[in-house]
Design a protein around this nucleic acid. Structure first.
Length: 479
RNA sequence: GGCGGCAUAGCCAAGUGGUAAGGCAACGGUCUGCAAAACCGUUAUACAUCAGUUCGAAUCUGAUUGCCGCCUCCA
């Protein structure tokens, strides 16, 4: 069964075929480190994390590069505004990136290079572009000449003529074409700078990705990814640079994820609705965030709101609940890494093979949750051996899927404890007090004082504490 | 002005030519002292509108309407 991937370049789903059998070279544009990461970064990083995990599960060796752009206009601005150095700014936000993404259980990429570590490669590329007549120096800057590259616009579906008609571009009369973009920028006093054949300066935006991609993965790679907004101009310009120099297809599959809206509005600094990952994680379990992000197809826009997040939390609770029942009943533990083998895994793969349709895959998870609960309900004491085997196979598949999505991948105890901690944090209830109330209620129930017992239940309910009477005692959790 | 995307039940969301997955919410039921959880049942003759292709379309084509994104830094 082949894997299909939507390719922005052809605007179609295509059968995924790698340059080298069983080996995937993948480059994903990482952040420009001048600010904290928001939920939109999380979507992109989580999605490509899942893509890498899935390709590995399907037997590919995946060489995954995710860069940091640590030299850029915005970093310089930030440094000047805060009175610190660019290096400090970059270091700070790289550190924060790791804190956020580690919390979201994002696996490390194979290589995580920084632009400033590749200055010699960048200079070499720029020089090669000049030598081939694709770029020209100008007062210490170097510009790429878009008119000299015939494929310019093929990714974003634009023609230079059309763009000139309506674009609002700062017209720099020195440039040969308004869309010529900087490969190298002469540095102003106080800016980061490196020696180059064109004087002291720093790389422009775009060239660092071409340089790091070719240095680490070669001139042609399988997948290049990023947010939809990077299609133009960033990726368009990368193609122009790399193909002009290497005269080969730069990337076979261009993969772009959609945006996250906040309460149906575009997330933007002017609207003041930027949601930082670290803030979201104060209220929601990391796996809830991942499940939310993966519940829609990666190319569709998704809407972040309390409602959609609460639904994801309810959904995740439900999955953990059945896992807990199952693992208690059969005395199994997640560390006993299961071998996926069953029908559920197969159908999950069918969904994932279809352009990483995580939404469909998650739907299948819920179908199996109901099936499992049904079996557990109808056979409290015993069940035929083949039924038990089928249930165990489904359990193994569930846990395997959890490891691909990075969701329901914890022990049920850990998840319950973390959820409770978050709930307590959000509502400020005192666990000791809750325990005391439960003890009082248990006493009342023993004495058959139902009215008193129910009053306690109701009182706790108003504080969002839900009680569950089990044979072994009363459990509580945050609703 | 140019380019692209999307419109499926109260809400979220699959479906990519063969007769509408799943989640949440709601209602009824089983279970329970009462609940919670779980399970069962009910909830779109119908997929923005109109026309066309086809034995057959949510799925293909054209038009219309409405949203949205990009064209400037942005995941």
């Amino acid at each position: 069964m082949p894997i299909y991937l939507y390719n922005t370049l052809s605007r179609k789903k295509e059968i995924f075929e790698t340059i080298e059998p069983d080996k995937v070279r993948m480059y994903v544009c990482g952040p420009t480190v001048y600010d904290a990461c928001h939920i939109g970064h999380a979507r992109s990083v989580v999605f490509f994390d899942v893509l890498a995990r899935y390709l590995r599960a399907r037997g590919f060796e995946v060489i995954y590069v995710r860069n940091f752009t640590d030299v850029d206009d915005k970093i310089i601005q930030k440094a000047q505004k805060t009175g610190t150095s660019c290096k400090e700014i970059a270091e700070k936000f790289i550190r924060e990136f790791y804190e956020d993404m580690d919390a979201l259980k994002v696996e490390r990429a194979t290589f995580e290079p920084r632009a400033t570590e590749y200055i010699p490669d960048i200079i070499k590329l720029v020089q090669a572009l000049i030598d081939k007549g694709h770029a020209y120096p100008l007062d210490g800057d170097v510009y790429f000449s878009v008119e000299r590259f015939s494929g310019y616009g093929k990714l974003s579906g634009r023609k230079l003529d059309d763009m000139e008609a309506g674009a609002r571009v700062n017209v720099d009369v020195r440039k040969r074409n308004p869309f010529d973009f900087a490969l190298w920028k002469a540095s102003k006093p106080g800016e980061p700078e490196w020696d180059s054949p064109w004087g002291k300066g720093r790389p422009g935006w775009h060239i660092e990705c071409s340089a790091m991609s070719s240095a680490l993965l070669g001139d042609s790679i399988d997948i290049h990814g990023g947010g939809q907004d990077l299609t133009f101009p960033h990726h368009e310009n990368e193609i122009a640079q790399s193909e002009a120099v290497f005269e080969k297809i730069f990337v076979r599959y261009w993969v772009h994820n959609g945006f996250v809206n906040i309460n149906s509005e575009k997330m933007s600094k002017s609207l003041g609705n930027f949601l930082l990952i670290k803030d979201v994680l104060k209220s929601y379990h990391p796996e809830v965030v991942r499940l939310f992000l993966l519940s829609s197809h990666y190319r569709s826009p998704i809407d972040f709101s309390d409602k959609t997040m609460d639904e994801s939390r309810a959904a995740l609770d439900k999955i953990y609940a059945v896992l807990s029942r199952l693992e208690d009943r059969f005395g199994i533990n997640p560390p006993e890494l299961p071998q996926q083998s069953g029908d559920l895994w197969k159908r999950f793969c069918d969904a994932m093979d279809d352009d990483l349709n995580t939404a469909r895959g998650i739907g299948m998870v819920f179908e199996s949750v109901r099936t499992l609960n049904r079996f557990l309900d109808t056979s409290e004491t015993s069940m035929p051996e083949d039924t038990a085997a089928a249930i165990l196979a489904t359990w193994a598949d569930l846990r395997s899927i959890g490891r691909i999505l990075g969701v329901f991948s914890e022990s049920t105890e850990q998840y319950a404890a973390d959820s409770k901690r978050l709930g307590i944090h959000n509502t400020m209830v005192d666990p000791a007090w809750v325990e005391q109330m439960i003890a009082d209620r248990t006493a009342a129930r023993k004495a058959r004082e139902w009215q008193k017992a129910d009053d306690i239940r109701k009182q706790l309910e108003t504080m969002n504490v839900i009680l569950e009477d089990r044979p072994e005692g009363t459990l509580w959790r945050m609703g």
